[in-house]
Nucleic acid binder design. Structure first.
Lengths: 240, 240
DNA sequence: TATAAAAATTGGTCTAGACAACTATATGTA
DNA sequence: TACATATAGTTGTCTAGACCAATTTTTATA
C-alpha cells in the first residue's frame, strides 16, 4: 500500500490511498477514520507524516476533524477551487453533457486597450484572439473569446487549441496556473450573440469573464464568455 | 512578539505577526520573507512550527513558496472562501457602498416542498421566512428571502435579524458555519421583482441561491436573492 | 442505581534534529 | 571569457518522541 522507498512522498501516497477508499465507498460519508496513531503504527511511519496527509485532505474538503472524537469523512467533497476553470470540457462532462467546440476565429491581433490592461502588456502588442462556439450535446451553450499574449505563450496553433489549450500551457510550456478571478453578470443577448447561440435577441444571458494568473500574479489569459441562461447555471461550492 | 507561554499557539501568533507585517506594508508583494530557519532561530522555536504557520498562510493565499529560492508575499491575497457570503453587509462595504436593509416580511410558515428538501426537514415543518430589500447607497440592490428551520435556529426575532443573523447563529447558538453552495443564474425581472427593485419588468436580474451548511453537512439556511444586473456583478477569486 | 472521579482515547501543538531536492553563487579550469 | 564543478542556502520530507486539550469510557463511590 505505502512504499517508503518510493520517490513519491509518503504523505502523498497516504492521501491518495484515503481518497481512493472514499471514492470506492470503503469509507462512507460520516465514517470515522482509524486514529492517526493507528495509521502511524500500521504503516510504520511517523504520526506527523500521517497528520500532513490528513491536514491536506481536511483543507481539500474530504475530511473533518473533531478534537477528542476523531477524523471523519465529509458528507460530500466540497468542490472548491477552479472547478470548470480548467476547461469548458470538464465542466460539461461534470454536468453529464457531451462537450463540443466550433472554432470560428483564430488570429493574432493588436491587443485592445482593456485586454492589454488585463494581460499587463502594452496596448496594441500582439495577442491571440480565439473565438469559439461551445456546444453541449450538439447545442450551442456559450460564445467564448480567449485572449493570450503571444509573448507569454509562444507557438500556439489552431490545432493545439482544438486539442487542449491548458495542457499546452501547463504541460508543454511548463507554466503553473495558480488562480483565477471570475466576474459574472447578467445581461441580454445582442444581435451577434443571439445568432451564434440561436436564441432570441433580448433573451437573458450570463456573461462570465475569467482572468487566469500564475503564482506571481502574471496574467496568462483572459476569457470572455456569453452563456445561454436557459441552459447554464453557475454553481460554486465554498469553504470557510 | 512571540509569547511561548501564551495559551495561544505559537504558529498562530506567527501567522498573525506576518499578516500584520503584510497589511502594514513592512512586507510588500513580491518580497522574500526571511528563511524558515531564521524565524526558528530568531524566536527560538522549532522550524516545524514555523512551517505550520507558513503553510497556513500559503493555503490562505498570503504567501507562496519556491523550493530552493524562498517564500514570498503573494501579489494580492486571493479572496477565496465565503467572501460576501457571511453577509450582504460586508459584500457591499467591500465594494465601497453603504449597505442598508428593509424588512418587508418576517414570519413562520410551513416549509414549501423545495425549501424543506434543501433544509433536510419534513415538508410543512415550520421555518422562518425573512424577506428583505437590500439597499446599497439607499438604492435597491436585491430582493432577498431567507429560510431557516425553527428547530435548528431557535428564538429568532425580527430584532436579531436586523442586527446580525450570522452573529446570532455562530456566536449565540454556537454553530460553526463551514461551507456553502451557491447557484447563480441569469433571468429577467417579473412584476414583483420589478416593483421592489424599481426596475422595468423584463430587465435583466441575477438570481443567487445560497445553501449554507455545517461541517457535517447539516443545512442551516437557504437564501434566494434577486439582484439588479445593472448594479451588481458577482466576483470570485479561486485558487487551484 | 446514580453520580462522580479516574483512565483511556483522540486530535492539537511542539521539539530538535536528519537528509533530500532544488536554486543560486562562488570557484576552478580550459 | 566561457563553462563545468563545487559549495552554500533554501524549501520539502520525515522521524520519534513529548505534553496539552477535549471527549469518551471505565471504574469507584455514595
Amino acid at each position: 500500500m505505502i512504499n517508503k522507498n518510493s520517490p513519491i512522498p509518503i504523505y502523498y501516497q497516504l492521501e491518495e490511498l484515503i481518497k481512493d477508499q472514499i471514492e470506492k465507498g470503503d469509507l462512507k460519508p460520516g465514517d470515522a477514520l482509524p486514529p492517526e496513531r493507528e495509521y502511524a503504527e500500521t504503516y510504520q511511519i511517523s504520526r506527523m507524516t500521517v497528520r500532513q496527509a490528513f491536514t491536506k485532505l481536511v483543507n481539500d474538503g474530504y475530511l473533518y476533524r473533531l478534537q477528542g472524537k476523531g477524523t471523519f469523512v465529509a458528507e460530500r467533497k466540497v468542490e472548491q477551487g477552479l472547478q470548470g476553470l480548467t476547461s469548458f470540457t470538464e465542466d460539461m462532462r461534470a454536468r453529464g453533457l457531451e462537450p463540443g467546440s466550433q472554432l470560428i476565429n483564430f488570429e493574432v491581433i493588436p491587443a485592445p486597450v482593456r485586454i492589454a490592461k488585463y494581460l499587463s502588456i502594452e496596448e496594441s502588442s500582439p495577442v491571440y484572439e480565439i473565438k469559439r462556439i461551445r456546444l453541449a450535446d450538439q447545442v450551442p451553450m456559450a460564445l467564448e473569446t480567449t485572449y493570450i499574449s503571444t509573448d507569454k505563450v509562444k507557438g500556439l496553433t489552431q490545432e493545439i487549441v482544438n486539442r487542449s489549450l491548458y495542457e499546452y500551457i501547463e504541460g508543454t510550456l511548463g507554466y503553473k496556473i495558480d488562480h483565477a478571478r471570475q466576474i459574472i453578470e447578467s445581461s441580454v443577448a445582442n444581435q451577434i450573440e443571439s445568432e451564434f447561440l440561436r436564441i432570441q435577441e433580448g433573451a437573458p444571458i450570463m456573461l462570465i469573464q475569467r482572468n487566469t494568473y500564475l503564482e506571481d500574479e502574471t496574467p496568462i489569459e483572459v476569457v470572455k464568455s456569453s452563456y445561454r441562461a436557459d441552459r447554464y447555471k453557475f454553481m460554486i461550492d465554498m469553504k470557510r
